[in-house]
Simulated scan of single mutants.
Amino acid sequence: MSRVAGRGSPSPASEADRRWLREAIELSRRCPPSDTAYSVGAIIVAGDGTRLADGYSRDVDPRFHAEESALAALAGSGGGSAGLADATIYSSLEPCSSRRSRPRTCTQLILAAGIGRVVFALHEPPLLADCHGAELLGQGGVEVVEIADMARLVRDVNAHLLPPGADGG
């Protein structure tokens, strides 16, 4: 099942969406373990299907989130944020909208970068924060696609934080 947050009708996920999201979930398996943070992977893909950058939680800094890391990698490669309106960021978990460890949330960073589309598998469970990332991105004009039938894979990676039934899924 796929749905677009903040929009009226469901948007079908393409095979490419599923492939990139599966890769983001696989990246999340590389995350250093944490009892206080989710393991998340993120990949930024250009409108033409070219992989621009990727990252995962805690890959370069213990406070880094996956989307933040991917955006920093993109900026570091000279890719900047020019022309990202046609780009998609694939994130295993809904981008955060609340953050203690940094001044800007992943939702704010995505909006500031001008990325036009976000695809994720699992809404952030309310275990660590009250997240409204998908809603805020939709309000900001970003197309937000949830591929809920892949959420189980994200729950599996985060089983250390999400015992069965803890997130309602």
Rank of each mutant, 00 (worst) to 15 (best):
A87F: 05
A87D: 04
R63P: 00
E68C: 14
A87K: 03
S69V: 12
S77Q: 12
D86W: 04
S97C: 12
P95Y: 04
S98L: 13
A87L: 07
A66V: 02
Y56P: 03
E94K: 03
A85W: 09
Y90G: 00
E67R: 02
A66G: 06
R63Y: 08
R99M: 15
D59T: 02
A82P: 14
D61F: 13
S98C: 07
S91E: 01
G83Y: 12
L71D: 05
G79S: 09
S77Y: 05
R63G: 00
G80I: 13
P95G: 04
L84Y: 09
S69R: 13
S97K: 08
A72I: 10
H65M: 12
L84P: 09
S92Y: 01
S92N: 05
H65V: 05
S92M: 06
A70Y: 00
H65D: 14
S69D: 07
D86E: 09
C96G: 04
A73R: 09
F64C: 10
A70W: 00
D59S: 11
S57V: 02
S97H: 07
S81G: 15
R63L: 07
A75W: 10
P95V: 02
S81N: 15
E94Q: 14
S57E: 08
A70L: 02
D59L: 05
D86N: 12
